[in-house]
Amino acid sequence: MALSGVQKTVLVTVAAIALVVGLTVNKALRPAPLNEAELQAAGVYLFDAPRPVPDIRLTSSTGADWGRGDLEGQWNLLFFGYTFCPDICPTTMAELRQLTLSLPEEDRRQLQVTMISVDPNRDTPQQLHSYLSFFDAGFNGATGDPGELARLAQALSVAYIEPDTSEENYLVDHSGQVIMTDPQGRYVGFIRPPLRPAELSQLLPRIMAKAD
């Protein structure tokens, strides 16, 4: 049956309205664009181009092999610290717990936090596992050969000083930034301390969505 002129006009009008509504909804759901000032205010620094991560061999807190391949398939926040650290490490891990638990569930599933030990002399996989279990946030850990650890830290611009392990209760000097890698296992930026979980919980989903 042929449509009348009025019916055609109605259909065109409905289609136009549907298109406008669709574009409006899409714009509303799209993450707001990131700007440099906003990122820096939250301590986030993103590179213009991702940087490679070397294929190293460490051991995870579960006792399995851990390497570059473990960074692939999800976003990662890497923190270089150690379990006997008296201040910055427990503070940072608690802030990372606060951050991850405040993310939307979908984003939380796409993010893995891993603590990489700069004290492999004391931080066995079992020690790391016990320490990370305290935070009850699904955190992973990695430890192992000092040479492999140093190679990874150098590639990610993380500084630490190997301690005199002959001293009792020695401390390890290390930087406190949190490294960000993308689902392709590439180094894309870092977060400077002190962490700001409230601001980061708003920014991280937008960073993750922007790079999809």
Score class of each variant (00 low, 15 high):
33 P>E: 15
38 E>N: 12
135 F>E: 00
128 L>K: 13
189 G>N: 00
28 A>V: 05
36 E>M: 08
18 A>E: 02
12 V>G: 06
124 T>I: 13
114 T>C: 02
85 C>N: 09
108 R>L: 00
49 A>Y: 06
26 N>T: 13
100 T>Q: 14
177 Q>M: 06
124 T>D: 10
104 P>Q: 13
42 A>K: 10
78 L>K: 11
185 G>D: 00
93 M>S: 03
108 R>F: 03
174 H>E: 04
77 L>F: 14
163 P>W: 14
41 A>K: 09
176 G>C: 00
62 T>D: 08
204 L>N: 06
164 D>T: 12
29 L>K: 11
36 E>N: 06
160 Y>V: 04
88 I>M: 03
68 R>Y: 03
125 P>C: 14
73 G>P: 04
212 D>Q: 14
75 W>H: 07
100 T>M: 01
186 R>P: 01
61 S>Q: 01
8 K>N: 14
16 A>H: 06
100 T>C: 00
6 V>I: 09
195 L>R: 07
44 V>Q: 06
163 P>G: 12
20 V>F: 13
7 Q>D: 15
47 F>A: 11
208 M>I: 03
3 L>K: 14
12 V>C: 05
58 L>K: 02
54 P>H: 11
100 T>I: 14
69 G>C: 01
33 P>M: 13
58 L>Q: 02
136 D>G: 06
150 A>Q: 15
